[in-house]
């Protein structure tokens, strides 16, 4: 069975949710990965969407973070101030999923503007949403993003959400209580922060991808782990369930 790089990325992210209890989910690839994990190996995983739907079990993939399907299948529907204050800020969520328009070697994220001048940006992006506090307060953060030099940049134009700031000790100095990004899953492989330097380091490549391909798609001198392992290819089960989700009836 063949698969796309996008499918490999989603499956790798879904696998990483094994053993976790709760996940703060954004729309798009993170929502697909979290819903796939619930159907594979994490049936008890509580999906929390920022609309205030706690423990949602959508039967089809939601198109927005506030679909009616999320509300009608949730354990509880709470207000937006409550989801951010009582659930996220208080440290109750295991994993937060984030995307990025730009990402640097310390996993700092930009989703605000492209260009050097905030007031006169080259490209205005949607902005922060829930991301800064997800990055600060979830016990761990997974970043799910396609690999390219446009995204993996030497310096982000704007720090919307903090990864490891300027390096070791930064999160503690800033008073950020979660561990920060522990995993960056891309369509080429997996990066993890080096325990000493906090710098994102290539630890795995997906089947058919060379280390050189990942270097070429990264806008800084990429650190590479001693042994780089290869991701297990998607199983037939994983692919069948993923395709049933993404090709399922549109709600």
């Amino acid at each position: 069975m063949s698969w796309t790089a996008e499918e490999m990325m989603t499956v790798a992210a879904a696998r990483a949710l094994a053993g976790h209890t709760s996940c703060f989910v954004g729309i798009g690839a993170p929502s697909t990965a979290a819903n796939l994990a619930r159907r594979l190996h994490a049936p008890g995983l509580a999906l929390v969407y920022e609309s205030g739907t706690i423990g949602a079990r959508p039967r089809t993939l939601p198109l927005s973070i506030g679909d009616g399907e999320l509300a009608t299948t949730a354990d509880a529907v709470v207000s937006v101030p409550e989801v951010f204050n009582y659930w996220l800020q208080a440290g109750r969520i295991d994993v937060g999923f984030l995307a990025a328009a730009q990402l640097d070697r310390f996993a700092n994220i930009n989703t605000t503007v492209i260009g050097p001048d905030y007031r006169h940006p080259t490209l205005r992006l949607p902005g922060a949403g829930g991301a800064p506090e997800i990055a600060a307060s979830c016990r761990e953060v997974f970043i799910l993003v396609r690999h390219s030099r446009r995204t993996f940049v030497e310096a982000v134009d704007f720090v919307t959400s903090v990864g490891y700031g300027d390096g070791p000790g930064a999160r503690q100095r800033l008073g950020l209580r979660g561990r920060g990004p522990v995993l960056v899953v891309t369509d080429l492989g997996v990066l993890e922060p080096d325990p000493a330097s906090c710098e994102l380091t290539l630890t795995r490549v997906h089947p058919g991808v060379e280390v050189a391909d990942v270097r070429a798609a990264t806008g800084w001198e990429l650190a590479v782990a001693g042994p780089v392992t290869e991701t297990e290819p998607p199983t037939e089960d994983e692919l069948a369930l993923l395709r049933a989700l993404t090709e399922g009836p549109v709600p």
């Binding site: 922060a128 506090e133 600060a136 720090v159 919307t160 700031g165 950020l176």
Partner: peptide, 12 residues
């Protein structure tokens, strides 16, 4: 709230 620390929103 606990928020914004380390982000560039603080500057703008």
């Amino acid at each position: 709230l606990r928020g914004y620390a380390g982000t560039d929103l603080v500057h703008h």
